[in-house]
C-alpha cells in the first residue's frame, strides 16, 4: 500500500479512536460516578440516559472565551495543552489491538511508550509556569515532582514484564502471553502475565498509572480544595478541553498499556488465530474498560493523599519493591 495513504488511514483511525474513546470514558465517569453517589447524572442530553452529555460539554467549552491572563507567557501558555495531548496520542501508535492492528510495531515499543508519555510532564510544567498564577505554579511544581517520582515505579514495573517476556515490542509481549504455559488434560493453557506471577508489578503499575494520571488519590496537582484547579486554574475554552480530553485519553492509553502488559492484550482464550484480528479489538476494549472502571471507581471512593505522603510512598515503598520484584523475576527467568 502507498506509504502516505497508510499513514493517513492510521492517523485518522488513531485520532478517531482517541477522541471517541475519551468521550466515552468521560460519559462513563459521569454516569458511574453519579450512580456511586446515589445520583442519576446526565439525563437529558441526547434522548436517553444523557449519552450526549460529553459532546454537549465539549461544545460548551469550545464556545467559551479562550482567556489568557495578562502576565501569562502567551506562546508557552498556548502550546502547553497541545504538548500534553500530543504525548498522549503518540502512545497509541504502538498499542496493538490485533496481530496486525497496530499503528507501528516498534521493537522498542514499551520503551517508546514510557519515553513519550513522560513528555506530558513538560506540558504540565509549561502550563503551570506560564499561567502567571501562584496556584498554577504550585500545581505545576507538584505535578512535576509527582510525575517524575512515579515514572520510576512505572518503568520498573514494566521492566519486570519485559524481563519475563524477553522482548520490548508490544506485540511480542502479547504473543509471549498467548504462548502455551502448561498443558492440562490435553488443553494448552496460556496465561496473562498477571497470573504468571506479575501481580506485584501489576499493582505497582496501576498505582503508578493513577499517579501519572493525577487522579484521586493522587490528584494533588489539581487538588481543587487546595489549589483551586492547580495548573488548570487559568485555562478555559478550547485549551481546557484539550487538557480535559487529554486526561481521559491518557486514561485509556495507560489502561491499554496495562492491559497489554499484564492482561494479555488482544489475546483471549479460545480464539483461533484467524479471527484474532477481528475479535482482538473487542477483547482489548473489554480489558481497557475493566481497568478504566477500576480507576473511576477508586476516584469516587477515596480521598487524596498529601504531597509528602505521595513521595514517601513512591520512594520508600514502590521503588524498592519494584526493584526487588525485578530481581526475583530475573532469577526465575534464568533458573527455569
Amino acid at each position: 500500500m502507498n506509504f502516505w495513504l497508510e499513514l493517513i488511514i492510521k492517523l485518522v483511525a488513531i485520532l478517531g479512536f482517541v477522541l471517541t474513546g475519551a468521550l466515552v470514558v468521560i460519559y462513563a465517569e459521569l454516569k458511574a460516578g453519579s450512580h456511586m453517589q446515589g445520583r442519576i447524572g446526565p439525563y437529558y442530553a441526547g434522548v436517553r440516559w444523557g449519552w450526549a452529555q460529553p459532546l454537549a460539554d465539549g461544545l460548551k467549552f469550545l464556545q467559551k472565551e479562550d482567556l489568557s491572563p495578562t502576565g501569562a507567557d502567551r506562546t508557552i501558555y498556548g502550546l502547553a495543552p497541545y504538548v500534553v495531548m500530543m504525548s498522549t496520542i503518540a502512545v497509541f501508535v504502538v498499542i496493538p489491538f490485533g496481530p496486525d492492528m497496530v499503528g507501528r510495531d516498534l521493537d522498542l515499543g514499551i520503551y517508546f511508550i514510557l519515553a513519550i508519555s513522560s513528555l506530558s510532564v513538560l506540558g504540565i510544567l509549561m502550563a503551570g509556569w506560564s499561567s502567571a498564577n501562584k496556584y498554577s505554579l504550585m500545581g505545576g511544581l507538584r505535578a512535576a515532582a509527582q510525575l517524575i517520582a512515579y515514572e520510576l515505579p512505572l518503568v520498573l514495573a514494566a521492566a519486570a514484564v519485559v524481563v519475563q517476556a524477553g522482548t520490548m515490542s508490544m506485540n511480542g509481549i502479547v504473543l509471549a502471553q498467548s504462548e502455551t504455559w502448561f498443558t492440562v488434560a490435553g488443553i494448552d493453557v496460556a496465561m496473562p502475565f498477571l497470573l504468571k506471577g506479575q501481580i506485584i508489578s501489576f499493582i505497582i503499575f496501576m498505582i503508578a498509572v493513577v499517579a501519572e494520571l493525577s487522579r484521586i488519590p493522587f490528584d494533588m496537582p489539581i487538588a481543587e480544595s487546595e489549589l483551586t484547579m492547580g495548573y488548570l486554574t487559568e485555562y478555559s475554552g478550547i485549551r481546557f478541553t484539550m487538557f480535559f480530553l487529554g486526561e481521559y485519553a491518557s486514561m485509556i492509553a495507560f489502561s491499554a498499556i496495562a492491559a497489554t502488559l499484564f492482561l494479555g492484550g488482544y489475546a483471549a482464550p479460545g480464539v483461533p488465530d484467524g479471527l484474532a484480528n477481528l475479535v482482538g479489538p473487542g477483547v482489548m476494549l473489554l480489558k481497557i474498560a475493566l481497568l478504566v472502571f477500576v480507576i473511576i471507581w477508586i476516584r469516587w471512593t477515596w480521598p487524596r493523599l498529601r504531597e509528602d505522603q505521595l513521595q514517601r510512598l513512591a520512594w520508600f515503598w514502590l521503588i524498592p519493591i519494584a526493584l526487588a520484584n525485578i530481581a526475583v523475576v530475573a532469577i526465575f527467568k534464568v533458573v527455569f
Partner: peptide, 16 residues
C-alpha cells in the same frame, strides 16, 4: 470535610 480531603462521595450520602 471529606470533600476537602478529596473524597467526593460522602458529600452525597450525608446530604441525602
Amino acid at each position: 470535610y471529606p470533600l476537602e480531603l478529596g473524597a467526593t462521595t460522602p458529600l452525597m450520602y450525608a446530604l441525602r
